Simulated assay, not measured.
Amino acid sequence: MQCEPYDQSFVDAVRAGGPDANGQPAERAVSDGAGNPCRSCLRDIARGEAMLVLAARPFPVPQPYAETGPIFLHAESCTPWRGDGVPPVLETSPDYLVKGYGADDRIRYGTGAIVAANRIAAEVAARLARDDVAYVDLRSARNNCFLTRVRGSADIG
């Protein structure tokens, strides 16, 4: 399973003062160390570190299924997540919201579910095995905030 960090061009633009998905500059804050996952490195932002709070829409264009919501980023550059397996942002909660989307960026009904953290890889693989699912979004089960996206093969190796 290869989780994707948030689009780097968007991350760089927002860090440089550019607008978020709502056309506003990101808010600057200091992490309290709990529940502030960076959508670039896919790790929690440590207590005392500067962070950005902003609106993000992880879809190419606005449309009815293109959800916009809050995300956090390290205020300073961090190394975007690369690698197989479950990133740290998916190891801090007992469960997550999993949803499959088609190549048209529209949700595929029947793919949404709250999934136990230890079942994430298997549940993502099951959705990616469907012919009508191009990618799976993982979100907070408590606040519905976008965390990461997984595309491609159902291989969870």
Score class of each variant (00 low, 15 high):
73 L>D: 04
154 A>Q: 09
129 A>M: 03
141 A>H: 11
130 R>V: 07
47 R>I: 08
52 L>I: 03
62 P>G: 12
75 A>T: 11
97 L>N: 10
10 F>E: 07
127 R>V: 12
77 S>I: 10
117 A>R: 14
150 V>I: 15
117 A>H: 04
7 D>F: 15
139 R>V: 04
122 A>D: 13
60 P>Y: 10
110 G>Q: 11
58 P>V: 08
122 A>K: 14
81 W>I: 15
67 E>H: 14
27 E>Q: 15
143 N>G: 03
126 A>K: 06
56 A>V: 15
146 F>Q: 01
33 G>M: 05
133 V>S: 03
13 A>Q: 01
136 V>C: 02
14 V>Y: 04
101 Y>C: 14
19 P>K: 00
88 P>F: 02
36 N>L: 03
21 A>W: 04
41 C>N: 06
131 D>Q: 05
55 A>C: 10
44 D>I: 00
29 A>Y: 06
146 F>L: 09
79 T>A: 13
155 D>R: 08
118 N>E: 11
90 L>M: 05
123 E>P: 13
60 P>T: 12
121 A>W: 02
17 G>T: 05
70 P>N: 02
57 R>S: 08
38 C>V: 00
14 V>N: 01
78 C>N: 06
100 G>H: 01
126 A>V: 03
10 F>W: 14
111 T>E: 00
87 P>K: 02
100 G>D: 01
125 A>F: 10
87 P>T: 04
127 R>G: 06
2 Q>W: 01
54 L>D: 03
133 V>C: 03
135 Y>E: 06
110 G>Y: 13
116 A>I: 07
130 R>L: 12
139 R>A: 00
130 R>E: 00
7 D>R: 07
27 E>G: 14
41 C>K: 04
126 A>F: 05
142 R>I: 12
37 P>R: 01
90 L>D: 05
5 P>R: 04
103 A>M: 12
70 P>Y: 11
131 D>V: 13
154 A>T: 13
92 T>A: 01
70 P>F: 06
144 N>K: 08
110 G>I: 09
89 V>E: 03
7 D>A: 09
40 S>H: 05
44 D>L: 09
110 G>K: 07
123 E>F: 13
57 R>W: 02
17 G>D: 07
19 P>S: 07
18 G>D: 00
87 P>W: 08
85 G>R: 05
99 K>P: 03
21 A>M: 03
51 M>H: 05
149 R>N: 10
47 R>Q: 12
124 V>S: 01
74 H>I: 06
21 A>Q: 00
56 A>F: 00
82 R>T: 15
35 G>S: 02
142 R>C: 02
18 G>Y: 00
126 A>R: 05
